[in-house]
Simulated assay, not measured.
Amino acid sequence: MKAKSLLFTAILAVTSASTVASETKLDVRFGNNTNSDIKDSRVKFMHTFDSGFYFSAEAAQIHNDGYFAGNDSNDPDTNGLKAAAQEFEATYKFQINDDWFWSPGLVMVTAPNWTEYRPYLKLGTVFDNGLSVTSRYRYNWSNDANGKNKLDGSGTTRGASNQFDLWLSKSFGDVGLMYNPRYRFQDGVDQGTGRDDYWEHTVMVNYKLNETWTPYMELVSVDETYVDENGKRENDYAIRLGFVMTL
């Protein structure tokens, strides 16, 4: 309940500040992991001020029996929508010159049993041909002291991983393309892959219908987090459909 109140307060603060804002957007997305058959959705408010300060508030949900299935607390077989986590992000964009920028920021993720703090630093540029390149280093630190398993079987430890992202994006008229490889590492600690590292690759295509609506599709390759009935690890794959609405 506290997390939901924080999310509502953040959204209210964002939308009420429109008189001084340069841009406010709403992002709604539905996804499905093909091997694990996990259905999820996300609602995200994003707000960028004229000063370069950016803030977002996000709520993620897991859909067990279906995207619009119901719940029944007396029947464990009837299990539809379930809150997964809330995410808040704040960053400030500093222009180095006309082409380059850097942005320090912080992401905070809250879930029922833990909170994770993710400070990061971005560096980006736009080339003359319109190609945008942004890199990010992020440190993920959880307040759950025993949330991750050690690979040597000696027990559990805190999640404290190093993550690296790269975004390559370019627009072709009203069509936008983006590629985002992601790498995460924590020495000797299982990253859900049976190893101490993790890879994820995302390809996104969007189409700007007008100044308000931009639908998009994401194709995602998730590292070996899926374990089949024989105990064999395989990559999982996700298909995500969503839209961004400029408010």
Rank of each mutant, 00 (worst) to 15 (best):
F185C: 02
F68I: 11
G52K: 03
A145F: 05
A13Q: 07
D174N: 06
S161P: 00
A21I: 02
F164R: 00
E89G: 14
V109Q: 12
A90T: 11
S51G: 03
F53T: 09
I38D: 09
L123I: 12
A145G: 08
G52W: 00
M178E: 08
A160R: 06
L106N: 03
T214M: 14
T115S: 14
D228Y: 04
A59E: 09
L81K: 10
N74E: 06
D128P: 00
Q86F: 14
K232Y: 03
D190T: 01
L166G: 06
A84R: 10
R195A: 15
F8V: 12
V175S: 01
N79T: 10
A13S: 13
T24N: 11
Q186E: 11
G147K: 12
G147I: 04
K150Y: 03
T9Y: 13
S41M: 10
L209R: 03
W100I: 03
Q191R: 09
F49W: 14
M46F: 05
V20D: 10
M204G: 04
D128A: 14
T193G: 06
H63S: 08
T125C: 07
T125S: 14
L12D: 08
M178N: 04
V189G: 05
K39Y: 04
T134N: 10
R29E: 15
L6D: 08
D165Q: 09
N71Y: 06
E200Y: 00
V222F: 05
P181Y: 06
T246H: 13
F127M: 09
W213S: 00
E116G: 02
V175C: 00
D50E: 14
G159H: 15
A90W: 03
R182W: 08
K4Y: 06
N146W: 05
K150A: 04
K148R: 15
T193R: 04
L177C: 05
I62C: 05
L241D: 05
A83E: 15
V20N: 12
G188T: 04
N64M: 13
A60D: 15
R240T: 09
N143E: 09
S22D: 12
I62W: 10
A145E: 11
